Every structure is written in structure tokens, then in C-alpha cells.
Simulated assay, not measured.
Amino acid sequence: MTDQANISPAAGLRAALRTLVRPVAVVTAAHAGQRYAMAATAFCEVSMDPPSMLVCINRANATHSAVAAGADLCLNLLAADQADISQRCGGGVAAEERFAVGDWRIAAEGPPRLADACASIVLRPASIVDHATHAVVIGEVVDVWQRGLSSPLGFHDGSYLFPLAHAAINLVAQSARLGEAGAMQDGYLMLDVMRAFYWFDEGLQSALRARGWEAVSRSQSMTFANIALGVRRPADLARNLGITRQGVSKMLQEMVERDWIVIEPDPTDKRASIVAFSEKSRQLRADALEILGKIDAALGERIGSKALDALRTTLARDWGPPPEIPEPAAQ
């Protein structure tokens, strides 16, 4: 068990919540001729009599001003293929531009509704409780639209979870271990590379925990790798990791609280910031590199040093840009 004594309650809570799979929604409102949209994962049902839900909204978010003025809000539950909508509404995009993607229905009165969401729930605020940085908005349900059976978009460990793809990747990784991969092992290099990544990552994480390091999530591990490769701006990290700027900001803050990284002003742009390794992370990185070296050595003993060298040489080569696959000819 990892020693949690030196972790602050806030950092511990963030780490605990990252283990949950959460649904993703876009909360919308309209007030005084202005439309608002924000991505959210902090919402849940409160009562069925009367039907009501709560949504947590940061009071610094523009959407809060509309709700505080009495505007209804719409909780649009996103489908698995709508991560781009969540990203647009997660920050960094102008208010009206957030509605440029998706089938939005704009009524003369009431909040914008996403017609192709899994479901859209209109809430009329009944109670607003301010606590610290956020407002807890409890709203009574006044209308519900449901598209039908569709897979929801999930958020886990700082990144979007695409249910079908995630299940397929895990199936490939587990089936290889159980010897039940069947046809999935035949001719698909991408799946072989995916299995190899899981194999290395599980060995690395297990060894780090054995040395007493706090749990490092895969997203955090990939963040370390990006920083080591020179990707240091939060916006670039968010793009490479496939998560929102808000999501990467929360993850970076957790890493700062654990004293793994520091966030500094960008010397080339006073409006931006960059991420750098902290002194504490020096030992973490040293341990990780030592462990990876031992994993490499163990793999060489299993498959032979020549095969390992050939594999490393092949993967290190410049493969050029991905090929353009032509569409099949019309029948």
C-alpha cells in the first residue's frame, strides 16, 4: 500500500476521483441574448419526487452568471462520439463558437439543446448553495429528450473513455495474456504494439509502487514522457493526451501538489506558462529509467538479445507520415 501521509486532502481527493468513470455533459443556459455552454462531470440526480438533479458550477464560469440570474439550464448528456463538443466547451473557445459543432436546437426561450446527445434534461433552478469556489445548483426537471440507445461518453483518469475502443484494447491485452487472442493476433501490428505498451506499463507501475512511490496514473506517466520530449505548454499537453485544457489543468495541479512538476512563466510568451520537472521528480525519473532498463534486460533474456535489438531498431526508424488509404472503388 502506498503511504498517503504526505498527500494533502485535496490531492488525495483528486487522485481518488480519477479512479472513477464519470459521464460527461455540456451544461447550457441562455440569458439576456447570450448563450452559454460548459463541460461538466459533477452532476447527479437528487430526487424522483419531484424529479430533480444537482449540478456543480464554478462561480468564475460565465454560465454561473446566467443561472444565478434565474435562467433555466440544460444538462446535455454526451454520446461516445461527442468528445469534440466537450473539448470545445471545456475552455479556450469563445462562447458562440462552442455551438459551431453538434446539432444544437436554439429556441426563442430556454437553454440550447443538443439534439444528438444521449439525452437532454432541462432544469429550473430551485436552490443555489454557494460553497468555496463553486455553486451547487439544485434544479427541478421540467423537460427531458432522449435520443434512444447510444453509448455515453465517459471520463476516466484525466482522459475521455471511448467504451467500445477501450473494451477492445483491454480485450486484446488480456486475451494475449490468457492465450485466447485468436484472430486478433494475426496481422495487426497496432494491436501487438498496444499489448507491448500495456506489458511495459504494468511492469513499470508495479516496480514503482514496490519502491514506495505514490501511484502514477497512465495519463501522468504520458505527461512525464511528453515533458521529457520537450512538450511543455499545457495546451500542447492537452492536445497530445486527448483531454480538455480543464482536464490537463487539474492533472497538472495534482502533480504540482505532489511536487513532481513546477509550472513557470514561459520566457518566450508572458501570457503563457510552461511545465518543468521538479527536484523531487529527479529521483522518480531515475527510478523509472532504472526499472525500464531492467525490464528491457529481462525481455532480452526471454526473446534473445538479437531479437530485442532488431525490434528496437525497427521501432526507432522514421516510418514517414501515415499512409493515405484510398476509398474502395464504387461497386
Rank of each mutant, 00 (worst) to 15 (best):
Q253Y: 12
A15W: 06
F197G: 12
L237W: 00
A16L: 12
A183P: 07
I325W: 08
N6C: 08
A39Q: 12
L114Y: 02
P163G: 03
D259V: 04
P322F: 01
F277H: 06
G247M: 07
S249Y: 09
P111R: 00
A115E: 09
S219P: 03
A79D: 12
D84H: 10
A32D: 15
A100N: 07
Y36K: 06
A165C: 12
S127K: 15
P51R: 04
A207W: 00
V136W: 14
R113W: 01
P267E: 11
D236L: 05
M255G: 01
E96V: 08
D143C: 09
A310N: 07
A210G: 15
V27R: 00
V21Y: 08
D266S: 04
M190G: 09
W260G: 02
T41I: 07
E214H: 11
A95W: 14
A39W: 04
L299R: 06
Q174R: 11
G320S: 05
V262R: 15
D130M: 10
A196D: 08
P50Y: 03
E324I: 15
A297L: 10
A329Q: 11
L252D: 09
M1R: 07
G212H: 07
Q146S: 07
T2D: 06
Q146Y: 05
D3T: 04
I169Q: 14
R105I: 12
T313V: 12
